[in-house]
Simulated assay, not measured.
Amino acid sequence: MKSYTHFTLSERNCLQQFLSEGKGVREIGRLMGRSASSISREIKRNCKDKKRYNAWWATSLYIYRRKKCVRKHVIRPDTKLYIYILECFKRFWSPEIIAHKCKQQGFIVCCASIYRALKENRLQGLSRKTALRRHGKKYIGNRKKCNTIHPVHTIYDRPEIVETKSRIGDFEGDTVYGGIGKGCAVTFVDRKSKLLVGSIAISRERNTIRKAISRAFELMEVPMPIETITLDNGSEFADFLNIEKDLGTTIYFADLHSPWQRGLNENTNDLLRFFYPKGTDFLSVSEKEFQKVIHLINSRPRKCLGYLSPLEFLSKKCCT
């Protein structure tokens, strides 16, 4: 069966011509390949007056009705859904997370509707640039050909249990740089629970990084054993043997220029970059303020955890 299509201007011109020649509705339908009911409905809806049919007038009426025939926005101001979405964005959640949480609250909305509302500036005080952490970001590679780290253990030496993510305590780590000479942050993420651990470092000097790593794990929100740590090959981790002794763990190094081998840590650092974009002066960021941001990220629901936050996931695991 042929699918239904709207009348075009050329079809309306033909219809006007046939009507002026005195042809009947059924005959016009056969000539135009349309059903008689479609011809009759077109004439009744779009006559300039009850007697005359004009193709241009009919097309104008059609366009006018089409513009009025628009679905009402699901996300409208002064509704409970609108207020709830704004509250979720204040927690820096993504549209996908917000859409899932809305369903749990009894609201019917998809993440595409939330993205559309942002694009059309229908959420007060929010835009794609301010609410979406990846909007407009460009990646500029900086590939060094030398490796300043001479690891004892590589990623290929890790126990199989690390790959399966079946236990807590296996961390991926890296540094988040600020501006030149403006300090950095060290971050570690548990592969199973996605719990973020971190601290501020005033420089990338090896001893400073070592102290910052020890402080980061001392400030960990949920105490857990440190089974393994997987790092990249940055020169700031050159004192890894002493770091192993400090934490009582084993450090493994990923391949050179292979961030996907620590994908969880890279993704979590991207979350952190929402609060501390490139060029941030970490020297002016207090440890207390930094830990508040870490708590905010650890309270963020994750799709891979069934939309539980890392803190909720660990609390449920401890209770079972």
Rank of each mutant, 00 (worst) to 15 (best):
Y4A: 08
H6N: 09
L19N: 00
S20H: 14
S20T: 11
V25P: 05
L31W: 02
R34V: 05
K51Q: 14
Y53G: 09
A55W: 03
A58N: 02
S60P: 00
R66K: 12
C69P: 00
K80L: 13
Y82A: 01
E87K: 15
C88P: 00
E96S: 11
K103F: 04
V109D: 01
K119C: 04
L123D: 01
K129Y: 14
K137A: 06
N147R: 09
N147C: 15
I149W: 03
H150M: 06
H150D: 12
P151M: 07
T154R: 10
I155N: 11
I168E: 07
D170F: 05
G178Q: 01
G179H: 07
A185L: 02
L195G: 02
A201T: 09
A201N: 03
R204T: 11
R210T: 12
A212S: 10
F217D: 03
M224N: 08
I229Q: 13
D232S: 10
N233S: 09
E236N: 14
K245E: 14
I251T: 06
H257N: 10
L264M: 15
E266I: 15
L272R: 01
F274C: 06
V285C: 02
F290Y: 11
I297Q: 06
Y307W: 09
L308Y: 09
S315C: 04
S315F: 03
C319I: 08
